[in-house]
Amino acid sequence: MRNDNQSSLGNSLTDFILVGISDRPWLELPLFVVLLVSYVLAMLGNISIILVSRLDPQLQSPMYIFLSHLSFLDLCYTTTTVPQILFNIGSSKKTISYGGCTVQYAIFHWLGGTECIILAIMALDRYVAICEPLRYALIMHRSLCQQLVAVAWLSGFGNSLVQVVLTVQLPFCGRQVLNNFFCEVPAMIKLSCADTTVNDTTLAVVVAFFVLVPLALILLSYGFIARAVLRIQSSKGRHKAFGTCSSHLVVVSLFYLPAIYMYVQPPSRHSQEQGKFISLFYSIVTPTLNPFIYTLRNKDVKGALRRLLVRIRRLCRS
């Protein structure tokens, strides 16, 4: 009878309270400014990458197809969470509806699962480009690239579907207070008043597939890449090969290190206080930095951005 009552209570929820930093009101204004500036930079940076990757004829290789999808993912990441965080910081009523919370973590985990696969695909692309340069165009043809991207998006959706189906069945008792800036599955599991063993186990299995397996493939790819680069005789050739990979390695580190902390260990074991700031890091800091990392380290992207700006100026003058 108690489980039935809990379930009915969980299904009739209307609002969750998002604590954020409401216990430290002096931090709200600085955080609001930082988030607003970061969001604007993330929007501008990622939209610019998408535009030049799609419009510039010199950026039509598979590498830039995958980069445009990564930028689109980062754009969606920030838009899924940051506007709602900004609204809550500026409001005295820091709440989100049960339906809104469900939609938020569903989209967030869809995007997260997809990004894990996309980063692994980008590592595969770099492996083929450096280790099989003569067969690169034959192997990484447009049809295969489209299929790989489709698999990434569908896999991410499958991850989200599994998490949502299990999480919406959790009962929540008493005051619904989420010690986080936004809704995500680990915080929801920690809030439940029922036995969450199935949720913890499923999350661990899914994480092993979407985080650890792609990460292992990335490390394996870069192991082969490192061996191939060391065989290059000229220092200029080695520098160029390293330059094409370094940006991706930095992005992988920024994405995977926080994700491993948040999701590899059971949600019931990690500190929510630390977890909410780490969640904030990979939902806004990483998407903001990614376009700048790729732009600063990539001459082709910088050249394409200059050509886009020149084109925009000409249109404005005419």
Rank of each mutant, 00 (worst) to 15 (best):
I218W: 06
G243K: 08
V149K: 12
L191D: 10
S283N: 08
C316N: 15
A42E: 01
Q84V: 04
R314A: 14
Y98L: 00
M122K: 11
N179Y: 10
D56S: 09
V250M: 04
L75G: 01
S271D: 15
V211I: 14
Y98V: 04
R231C: 05
F281K: 05
S221L: 05
L59P: 04
L18D: 00
I21W: 13
L111E: 12
V310N: 12
V33W: 02
H248C: 04
F87T: 13
R2G: 01
P287I: 04
E28Q: 14
R175H: 13
T202W: 02
L119D: 09
C183R: 01
R231H: 13
R297I: 04
G112S: 13
A194L: 05
V252S: 03
V37K: 07
C245V: 01
Y127S: 02
T81C: 09
I118D: 10
G100Y: 15
W153P: 12
D200M: 08
Y127H: 12
F87W: 12
T244M: 10
P133R: 02
S143N: 12
G156S: 10
L219G: 05
A216F: 06
W26V: 06
G156Y: 01
V40F: 14
L305M: 15
V82S: 04
L70V: 09
V103P: 00
A152S: 15
Q147L: 10
C101M: 02
D23T: 12
H69C: 12
L161T: 15
T78I: 11
Q274H: 11
A208F: 09
S221M: 08
G243V: 06
E184K: 07
C101P: 01
I278E: 02
L217W: 03
F16I: 00
N290E: 11
H109S: 05
T81N: 09
G10C: 13
A228H: 05
N199W: 11
P291Y: 07
R231K: 15
S143E: 12
K93G: 04
S53E: 09
M140T: 07
Q6K: 07
R269K: 09
N11R: 15
G45A: 06
M43R: 09
V285R: 02
L305C: 15
F66N: 06
N199V: 05
N179K: 11
D15Y: 01
T202M: 14
P30H: 05
I260G: 04
P133K: 03
